[in-house]
């Protein structure tokens, strides 16, 4: 990733996102500007359908904006081919999903190993990285367990271990506590906060929960495709 403009990691510049449903055009994001400095823990809040997940997808290179630019670490994403965008995601982005999205037929350690299969690491090196990631989320003892034998909180920790195993620049979390009870949710938020504070990971977290957003260093609000620094009353 380029070092230019290094204090700003995520630069969303005049982004618009339009979906078509038949003849109808749905403007999900409208001339949206957002800058996220490196090392920030940003919470993105807003009502359902406000475009939070769409914005997260654009920042993560999962989708392309109708207009405007997304730059990560100074690198514009619009010029990358699908193949190069996939390689870029593998190197720079860690995703944490609301429903964990683990592969049910793979053990915890195999799930965490998945992103490493795309690297040139040897089996021994991959195992070392997987062990370190699982240790970081406190699940070393559950490495051989399959998702169905893990609690929701444990599954989300495996999801976080999978997201951080390649040491990505940016963690994108889409309602990471949305499917968990308060206790398990707090544990996940503790973990994200620790990753931000101790390892300097930049985190963007979509959430509905003010309790979760209180853990972030900044919160922005999205309503009808536009950003605001205060929630809409």
């Amino acid at each position: 990733m380029s070092n230019a403009n290094s204090e700003i990691l995520v630069d969303v510049d005049g982004v618009e996102m339009v979906f078509r449903r038949g003849a109808e055009e749905i403007h999900v994001l409208k001339d949206l500007h957002l800058k996220v400095p490196k090392g920030e823990f940003l919470a993105l809040m807003g009502p359902s359908g406000s475009g939070k997940s769409t914005l997260l997808n654009l920042i993560g290179g999962l989708d392309r904006p109708t207009r405007g630019k997304v730059r990560i670490g100074g690198e514009p994403l619009e010029g990358l081919s699908d193949r190069r965008l996939a390689d870029w995601r593998a190197r720079h982005i860690g995703f944490v999903f609301q429903l964990y999205n683990l592969v049910p037929v793979l053990s915890a350690e195999r799930n965490v190993e998945l992103p490493l299969l795309l690297t040139h690491l040897t089996k021994a090196q991959r195992q070392k990285h997987v062990a370190a990631a699982l240790n970081m989320v406190g699940l070393s003892q559950r490495a051989r367990h399959f998702p169905r034998t893990l609690s929701g909180g444990e599954q989300q920790r495996v999801g976080i271990a999978r997201a951080i195993v390649t040491d990505p620049t940016l963690l994108l979390c889409d309602e990471p506590t949305g499917d968990l009870d308060r206790k398990a949710g707090d544990e996940i938020l503790d973990l994200l906060q620790a990753l931000n504070r101790e390892q300097g990971k930049t985190i963007i977290m979509v959430t509905h929960d003010p309790h979760a957003s209180a853990r972030a260093s900044r919160t922005v609000y999205l309503n009808k495709g536009q950003l605001a620094s205060e929630p809409l009353q």
Partner: peptide
């Protein structure tokens, strides 16, 4: 959904 996750974490089309 799983294929979507694989693509999200960096698996390319090939």
């Amino acid at each position: 959904g799983e294929i979507g996750v694989l693509k999200a974490i960096g698996f390319n089309q090939g």
